[in-house]
Design a protein around this nucleic acid. Sequence first.
DNA 1: TTGCTGAATTAGTAATAACTAATTCTATTG
DNA 2: CAATAGAATTAGTTATTACTAATTCAGCAA
Lengths: 230, 230
Amino acid sequence: MKATTRLSPSTEDYLKAIYEIEVQQGTAQTSAIAEVLAIAPPSVTGMVKRLSESGLLEHTPYKGVQLTRVGRRSALRMVRRHRILEVYLTSKLGYDWDSVHEEAERLEHAVSDELIERMALALGHPRYDPHGAPIPSKEGVIEEPVLVPLSEVPIGSMAELRQVSDRDAERLRYLAQLGLRLGAAFEIVARQPFRGPVTVRLSGRLPKEQVVGHELASSLGCLLRGKEVG
Amino acid sequence: MKATTRLSPSTEDYLKAIYEIEVQQGTAQTSAIAEVLAIAPPSVTGMVKRLSESGLLEHTPYKGVQLTRVGRRSALRMVRRHRILEVYLTSKLGYDWDSVHEEAERLEHAVSDELIERMALALGHPRYDPHGAPIPSKEGVIEEPVLVPLSEVPIGSMAELRQVSDRDAERLRYLAQLGLRLGAAFEIVARQPFRGPVTVRLSGRLPKEQVVGHELASSLGCLLRGKEVG
DNA sequence: TTGCTGAATTAGTAATAACTAATTCTATTG
DNA sequence: CAATAGAATTAGTTATTACTAATTCAGCAA
């Protein structure tokens, strides 16, 4: 219940994971947390109990958890740290978008608030990380943009790639290789039913068609730009 | 005994502390380690046992410990990390010499070797940290310069301040205020007996005399420049 | 309503690394 | 050479946070 107890790195990981699951799924279940953190479910139950006793989240047994205001605040602090670090490592130290996540994951527990603010200042207070994820303000305000998964963009639409998941380095390397970088514009040419692949035609000097599997497509956040009338 | 087991942050702290005590005192006693790490002596005994079982150091009970080759290698890796971080934070992010130590102390456990090498490259492979301490090479080679504590510089000599301890931020702020920065040149004017203070005359546009207490003086590493014949 | 399935929880254990209190050793001193 | 002070160690405990195995619960289907 104490307001100013330092959180352990484990606690920080839980809060951030729960925040990210809440954004995607609304409520965070034990098994989802366990999967994100690569931890056995009983370990999650135990930790969740401690976190709810500290007032960081509310636990409805057998249902799931929700961050309290205090918990969300701490989670957003970690999200800010992670994303500022990713931008810094990419812009100032030559990291690629597929390798920053792992480094930031460790550093986010060790940096001071001061260092993060110095980095943010040196970067000109960036609004998005290298994967297009929005960066919360120091005060814990975040603007989650409304994006549509590529797997759900209507056929014939023009769309722009705005955000990708940073979890899997292999996936990021593959995307770069396909030409699917942030800001890439394309038309959705076709989509196979039954969770089948999506075909897109990338705009550019020589337009290229690419086929993207359903799972990958559902991890790509797109901004719709209206129908192609050509 | 396994060669490639990751070391815990605690282990890394012990090895670095022991290395630094060895440099100063030749051999590291339990109580010295306890003091540097701000830990109770029995905790040190316990950890030392584990570390010697892992082959990182040799423990002669009731006498003290010595790093093995493997232990020294790991210690120097931490020393390199710490010092590169200090230079980076100072040169690239505007930290002062009195505030970098604490930040580096946390970061040294979290950064990857790759990040350290990227920082070293961005800095042009610096040889000294902001407090004048030499930076070991990636391969674990360090050149400990031969310096004389200010408390032992003969009266009448000219000397240059080359290295200061980074442990105490207050002390560093005080030194800066006195005008005792790295590279500062001065003549030793007087020294009181019985561990008394040292009086130095700083060179510069308007030479100034400063009195430095014995304890502080013994933490300042000086390079002798010969007698003043003026 | 009963039973099943999968998710979640409880129970019990282990590793790491700290602590205090009590004991033992080393080295010095008379 | 015995007494003793101070350093070091042993003994026993605590807090975190993970694990596996066993049990319990929620929600759906028959």
